[in-house]
Structure formats: structure tokens, C-alpha cells
């Protein structure tokens, strides 16, 4: 790579949240909850004085998964449901980067559900932000795994009749090292949670209540239901599990901050050059 003198960019300490946003105009509906995530993410990055060049925001497909292009950092907008896999590969291959994986509830809990389980148990040092609007927004209003069983839609008239997927329960039992819930209507609180998530070693999972004003307009009421600071961090899994038994889905805060060491592939005993590997074939 030929290094050329770099453009005059603001010094890290001088960067404000806006310096972490790109000039690409979001395609989202006015009032979409996901705007709040861009703001909170930018705030958290500014607070941590991250270098945009050392951050990669990775996503799958969905309205929420459009987020990488709206940030000033490196972005990766892959295929539906595989954001965690791409993020895992990136972080393992490039441990020096800060990797933030983003997406929706359909992307992460339905088509990508298996990757969610294994990302939790693998515990790679990265952050996963799910913008949960309990609907498939991009495909215009089908039920997702977190949708209420009686929510009526064209694809599932009278509702799916299926029990909702419990992201925090799954994350806790699968081994995520940091588990929190935020709300896009509270960008400051969300920014704080994201900051803690990024700083916490291992796999950090942030479930964000992010209303879809178009297909779930009733979610505009969420701001009246959420309970800020209702979840208090603990490193005790049993306590966290017990707390979840009383969970209504609207308590905000950090549920769990564990101490499991992050994924670290075992290094070799001694480094060799590729040609030294040939010895094993020689007769």
C-alpha cells in the first residue's frame, strides 16, 4: 500500500458526534426509530474518541441494516441474516478494529438466529446492536420472531399464534458477555449503553427498542411504557436470569456484564515461513 499524507481530519478529541456520521441521507421513513440509533452510536463513538478509520459497522439486510452507510466509519452491508458471521470473520482476522454489528430483529433472530446463538457462545470481542421493531419493516410489515402472537398482518392474518422470541434470555443462556436493552427514544441513555457495550470485552449484545412508525404505529407509545434504568448490571448469571423472569420487555439498562474471557484463537508455538511447512511432505 502506498501511504499518502492523509487529509486534515479533526483530532480525535475535537470530534463531535456529527463527525461520525456520513453525508449519505438515510432512506428511512420520517420518525423511524433507527435515526435514534445513528445518533446514539455517533455520540458513543465521539465519547470514546474512536478513530472512524478503525471502526467497522457491519450489517445484514433490512431497514435497520442500512446503518453502516450512514456512519463515517468503514461499513459492510452484506446479505440477510449473516452480519454476525461477517463481523466475526472481520474481527478475528483484524483484532485491531472495533467491530460493531447491527441489524433488525428479523435479520438477527429469524434468518440469522443460529449465528446469534453461536456469536453469544463464541464471545468474540465485538458489539451487536439489534434494532427491534417487532416487524419486518423492509418487506413491508410481516411478523418477526419478536412480534406479538396476535398481531394481524397480510401474511399471518389474525396473528402467528407463536410465542415471542426472548432475545435477552437467549443471549444470557447462550453465553453473551454483556447484555443490555436500550430505547431509541432515549438517545443519551442508549449512547451510554452502547459505550459500555463497546468497552466491555467479549460479545456485547444490545437489544434496542426501535419503533417502526410505518407498520407498527402503535409503537410510538413505547416512550410511555419504557422504564429507564430498570435493569442493573450484574456479573452473576443467576441474578440476571432471575431478573428476566420479571421482565416485561420494556425495562431498560444493562442486565448482565460477565467476566468470561473473549474468544482468542490459540497462537502457534513457533512461527514458520510458508516454505518451512514443506518439510512435512518431503520424503
Amino acid at each position: 500500500m502506498n501511504e499518502v499524507a492523509c487529509n486534515a481530519a479533526p483530532a480525535p478529541a475535537m470530534r463531535g458526534p456529527n463527525d461520525y456520521k456520513s453525508d449519505v441521507k438515510p432512506v428511512w421513513c420520517p420518525g423511524c426509530g433507527d435515526f435514534g440509533v445513528v445518533n446514539a452510536l455517533a455520540k458513543a463513538m465521539a465519547k470514546m474518541a474512536l478513530e472512524p478509520k478503525d471502526v467497522a459497522v457491519v450489517s445484514g439486510i433490512g431497514c435497520s441494516s442500512r446503518i453502516p452507510a450512514y456512519m463515517a466509519s468503514y461499513g459492510f452491508h452484506g446479505v440477510h441474516g449473516r452480519a454476525l458471521a461477517a463481523g466475526t470473520g472481520l474481527k478475528v482476522a483484524r483484532p485491531d478494529l472495533t467491530v460493531i454489528v447491527t441489524g433488525g430483529d428479523g435479520d438477527g433472530y429469524s434468518i440469522g438466529g443460529n449465528h446469534f446463538l453461536h456469536a453469544c457462545r463464541r464471545n468474540v470481542d465485538m458489539t451487536y446492536i439489534v434494532m427491534d421493531n417487532r416487524v419486518y419493516g423492509m418487506t413491508k410489515g410481516q411478523p418477526s420472531p419478536t412480534t406479538e402472537p396476535d398481531w394481524d398482518s397480510k401474511l399471518s392474518p389474525d396473528g402467528t399464534g407463536l410465542r415471542e422470541f426472548q432475545p435477552l434470555v437467549i443471549a444470557l443462556t447462550s453465553g453473551a458477555n454483556f447484555i443490555a436493552r436500550g430505547f431509541t427514544g432515549d438517545p443519551n441513555g442508549l449512547a451510554e449503553i452502547i459505550e459500555q457495550a463497546v468497552r466491555h470485552p467479549g460479545f456485547s449484545f444490545v437489544e434496542v427498542l426501535s419503533p417502526c412508525v410505518t407498520f407498527r404505529p402503535e409503537q410510538k407509545e413505547w416512550k410511555k411504557i419504557v422504564k429507564a434504568d430498570a435493569l442493573k448490571p450484574t456479573a452473576d448469571m443467576t441474578r440476571a436470569a432471575r431478573r428476566l423472569l420479571r421482565d416485561t420487555g420494556f425495562e431498560l439498562g444493562v442486565l448482565y456484564a460477565g467476566e468470561r474471557p473473549p474468544y482468542a484463537p490459540r497462537g502457534p508455538r513457533a512461527l514458520r515461513t510458508p516454505s518451512e511447512l514443506e518439510a512435512r511432505f518431503a520424503l
Binding site: 467497522a56 452484506g78 449473516r82 470473520g89 472481520l90 478494529l97
Partner: peptide, 27 residues
């Protein structure tokens, strides 16, 4: 590992190929 690289066992091939793409995106 001996040449300073890394191998991850993925949960399925959807993951393995996307992981490889992620790693390569990282250079």
C-alpha cells in the same frame, strides 16, 4: 497458525463463507 494465520470453526457454511468474506474485507 504456524504462519501467523487463524482458522475459526463456524456454525455452518452460511457462517463460514460470510466469515471468510468478512476477513477478506478486513484485508
Amino acid at each position: 497458525a504456524q504462519v501467523g494465520g487463524t482458522l475459526v470453526q463456524a456454525e455452518d457454511e452460511l457462517a463460514s463463507v460470510n466469515m471468510a468474506i468478512g476477513g477478506s474485507y478486513g484485508g
